[in-house]
């Protein structure tokens, strides 16, 4: 009972922190807006009372920054959630949302559009890049599943991971080739920045879409939380606890891949969040998924909102790619976890 209350308390605290991080983030940028003004703008837009806000503040906070802050929260939440699910499902601490060749496939689609678009038409819209990234990710996923699936429809985790690596390598070779051959510096620059991820260009429609994806994923995955608990002692133990292992594995691998494809299409590749956040949260909540999964979503959202805030404020007049921020912060953290684990064992 105390654990239940503790868990709900931790979750409430996390949500409060997320709200605070978003409020701060909405005020940070080339034009600073104070937190009280930010709250007034948001309250007015949510029809919570009558507020006297300046048109400029409203434009900056609600039209320019809200989509990217909301988008960052959604992407962070979904990445961490997918990472946690894949780590449990494959019993592999290194699993992350890009496991199944998603990143490589999305890159093939996006890079193709960027390079061809830049050389033929001068510029391509971000919608075309997003669509191509999504299609590429699905194609890669299909290739991985075909390679990995057994004759009787099983999906052995090790073979699935190796198939993901193989497909990823082919995709990487193709994208490198395309970028080099195009000889177009502008395209190369755009590909590089896509590869490092960004939520800067997000518009309201994309942000709402991503928020819905994150919400649906969280609720859907919570429904199978205790079945993931059953994997603690491996596949046979899960089966003896009444889990239909093959069906659950297909559902969750394909489900998380679809979610990741949506994220990648809109925000590019943002590393380390899906890998590291589940490990951090597990330290606090323990391995039980009914608390771990919602906490991962909340902490993932906080981390990416914070990373985006840093990305647009650390260098004056220029954006640092968000993937650089998560990498710089995430990698040392991961190393620390590694050493901690070694002392533990």
């Amino acid at each position: 009972m105390t654990r239940t209350l503790g868990g709900l308390g931790a979750l409430a605290l996390g949500l409060a922190l997320l709200a605070a991080a978003m409020a701060v983030s909405l005020g940070v940028g080339s034009v600073r807006v104070g937190v009280p003004e930010v709250l007034e703008v948001v309250a007015r837009r949510m029809h919570l009372g009558v507020w006297d806000v300046s048109l400029l503040d409203d434009q900056i906070v609600w039209q320019l920054r809200m989509p990217r802050v909301l988008g960052a929260a959604a992407v962070g939440a979904a990445l961490a959630l997918c990472g946690a699910v894949l780590q449990s499902l494959t019993r592999n601490d290194l699993a992350d949302p890009y496991l199944l060749g998603i990143s490589g496939g999305a890159a093939v689609g996006a890079v193709t559009v960027i390079v061809l678009g830049v050389s033929f038409a001068g510029l391509v819209g971000s919608a075309a890049v997003a669509a191509a990234g999504f299609v590429g990710a699905l194609a890669a996923l299909a290739a991985v599943l075909v390679l990995a699936a057994g004759r009787s429809g099983t999906l052995p985790p090790t073979r699935t991971i190796l198939a993901g690596v193989a497909v990823g390598q082919v995709c990487a070779a193709y994208t490198s080739f395309l970028v080099i051959v195009s000889g177009d510096d502008q395209a190369a620059r755009r590909v590089l920045s896509w590869t490092l991820g960004s939520v800067a260009g997000l518009r309201w429609e994309s942000a709402v879409f991503l928020a819905v994806v994150a919400l649906v994923a969280t609720v859907g995955i919570l429904g199978v939380a205790d079945q993931l608990d059953a994997f603690a002692f491996g596949e046979a133990a899960a089966r003896s606890l009444g889990v239909d292992v093959t069906r659950l594995r297909w559902t969750l691998l394909v489900g998380t891949a679809l979610v990741t494809a949506c994220l990648v299409a809109h925000a590019g590749l943002i590393g380390f969040v899906g890998l590291v956040v589940p490990h951090i949260v597990r330290l606090v909540t323990g391995p039980g998924h009914r608390l771990l999964l919602p906490m991962c979503a909340v902490v993932g959202a906080i981390v990416l909102v914070a990373a985006d805030t840093i990305a647009r404020s650390v260098v004056d007049g220029q954006e640092v790619p968000i993937g650089v921020v998560t990498g710089v912060v995430g990698a040392p953290f991961f190393a620390w976890l590694l050493r901690r684990g070694r002392n533990h064992a």
């Binding site: 239940t4 019993r91 919570l222 199978v224 205790d226 608990d229 002692f233 606890l241 391995p287 009914r290």
Partner: peptide, 26 residues
């Protein structure tokens, strides 16, 4: 490889009996 307590391991045995599967409650 997980850091489970003995009680948490034994609680796994209740998984096939659980109903409210959406619950965050223990």
């Amino acid at each position: 490889t997980l850091d489970l307590t003995v009680r948490e391991v034994v609680e796994l045995g209740r998984i096939p009996h659980r109903r409210g599967r959406l619950s965050v409650l223990d």
